[in-house]
């Protein structure tokens, strides 16, 4: 085996290639970091764009987080909070729904269940533009226009396919014998879920919750069409606004992107394993 050799130019090449790619992947992070730690005057000096800050300062983070009222700039802290208020309930509700659905679709298949499942799955692939016009009108008609609840509802509904899919694949691995045994003991549909599957579900929930949390946190199209009130805007919309300004303070914008990216990034770094599992489950069969 090649790995046992003490020196192998081939392996050196492999490491060099891996390191080269890693550096390329980190270029945007580098740019974000060096820009966000610079004061405005320095970030304006484009000849220094790629150089580290002369004297790192937290002032852009402060401005991005708390806002600069005299410049008409609202702080992103508010939007982070909005995103949490939106993401947490939507994630929990859609995970619970997905768990029940996945349970039924893997262990209690009735006739036509597969067809229903396939029809549900289609909902996660559609371009959301194709439902956007009716969606905005319906949300308005039921009185949820411009509320966080409206956006939560939307994310719950369009989250059902993926959460159902992940749980269905997850529960499919639970041996049918366990369920048979419980049923012989007289357990019904809910008791089997509660006594047998739910205790086994934690890893599944972690995968689904991470997946839903990141995708709802990162979502833009629904947020931009449904929740535009400044005091309710989620972070992605606020960030787009910050970056779309006529006169861009790039240090501020980069600090904003770091703030916006932080929650999902932290989750990813800590629970990356599960994130990958969620990713793989997202590809229908994995």
């Amino acid at each position: 085996m090649s790995a046992r050799r003490s020196f192998d130019p081939m392996r050196l090449g492999i490491y060099l290639l891996l390191i080269l790619f890693a550096m390329l992947f980190l270029v945007p992070v580098y740019v974000m970091l060096v820009s966000s730690f610079k004061p405005f005057a320095e970030v304006q000096d484009l000849s220094r764009m790629w150089l580290p800050p002369k004297a790192p300062t937290l002032e852009s983070f402060q401005a991005a987080w708390f806002g600069v009222p005299e410049k008409g700039l609202r702080g992103l802290s508010l939007n982070i909070f909005n995103s949490l208020k939106l993401t947490i309930p939507a994630t929990i509700i859609s995970s619970l729904l997905g768990s029940m659905n996945g349970y039924i679709l893997s262990k209690w298949k009735f006739r036509g269940a597969d067809l229903i499942f396939a029809l549900m799955l289609f909902g996660m692939f559609i371009p959301y533009q194709s439902i956007l016009i009716p969606l905005t009108r319906v949300i308005a008609t039921i009185g949820l226009g411009g509320t966080i609840w409206g956006l939560i509802l939307v994310h719950v509904v369009y989250g059902i396919p993926i959460t159902t899919l992940i749980f269905r694949n997850y529960y499919a691995e639970v041996p049918t014998e366990m369920i048979e045994a419980a049923r012989i003991d007289g357990a019904g549909i809910f008791k089997v879920y509660w006594k047998v599957l739910f205790p086994l579900s934690m890893p599944g929930f972690v995968v689904v919750i991470i997946w839903q949390f990141t995708s709802i946190w990162n979502e833009f199209l629904f947020a931009v069409t449904i929740l535009q009130r400044p005091e309710l805007q989620p972070i992605t919309v606020a960030l787009r606004n910050l970056a779309g300004s006529q006169i861009k303070e790039w240090n501020l914008v980069m600090a904003g992107t770091l703030i916006a990216a932080m929650p999902t990034l932290i989750i990813y770094i800590i629970l990356g394993r599960y994130f990958i599992r969620g990713l793989l489950a997202g590809s229908v069969k994995g």
């Binding site: 308005a140 226009g145 411009g146 509320t147 409206g150 069409t225 535009q228 009130r229």
Partner: peptide, 11 residues
Amino acid sequence: AVLATRMQSGD
């Protein structure tokens, strides 16, 4: 565009 979506969604 933002205003249009807000007016459309009754907000």
